[in-house]
Structure formats: structure tokens, C-alpha cells
Amino acid sequence: MRDLISTIDAGRARGDGVALATVVKTGGSTPRPLGAKMIVNSRGEFAGSVSGGCVEGAVIDEGRQVLKTGKPKLLKYGIADETAWDVGLSCGGMIEVFVEQIQ
């Protein structure tokens, strides 16, 4: 979180909405630990990470959506059920990512 504060504040100072995505649950082997974070602004610019690059693209799209609707969302990524998840983690683990707009 510490390393993202200045980027969050710069975005807010420009009047951009900023969405925060946090890893809130992990299972098996995952590249980033519980609490790992990335931020996304309404232009799709991002900083930080929630995986080793496997799901960031999808999280950016979801972050922009959350900024549009104002409604937070819980995302689940894994490889256990390929029909449910169109993006997966190569390491075989699962993560839940909570995306919310920073108030």
C-alpha cells in the first residue's frame, strides 16, 4: 500500500477515479501474497500487481467497470474450473481479488 499512495493521490488530485484491487484470498501456490494490491484509473493506467502478470489485464477492465458503476466487485481466478474463468493462473493456485473505488 505504501508504494501506491503517491500514485493514488496524484490521480485523485487530477480528478480521476481510482480503483483499488486487493488479493483477499489465496489457495495453493500463488505469485503474490494476501494483501497484494494494484490500482487502476478511469483511463486504464495501472500500478502494482495482484499476480505474476496472469490476470492484471482482466483486473484493469474490471477496475474501469467498478469506477463506472461505483459498485465494488469480487473476482475469482484459478485453473480449477476453466469454464468459469477465462483468465487463469499458470502456477495452479487460485486468488480472489476485491475491486473497489477509493472514496
Binding site: V24, K71, P72, E96, F98
Partner: peptide, 9 residues
Amino acid sequence: TIVSGAANL
């Protein structure tokens, strides 16, 4: 933070 389930997501 409530991340799932309840009304106050």
C-alpha cells in the same frame, strides 16, 4: 472489508 456475501459489500 466485507468482500462477499452480505448486503454491505
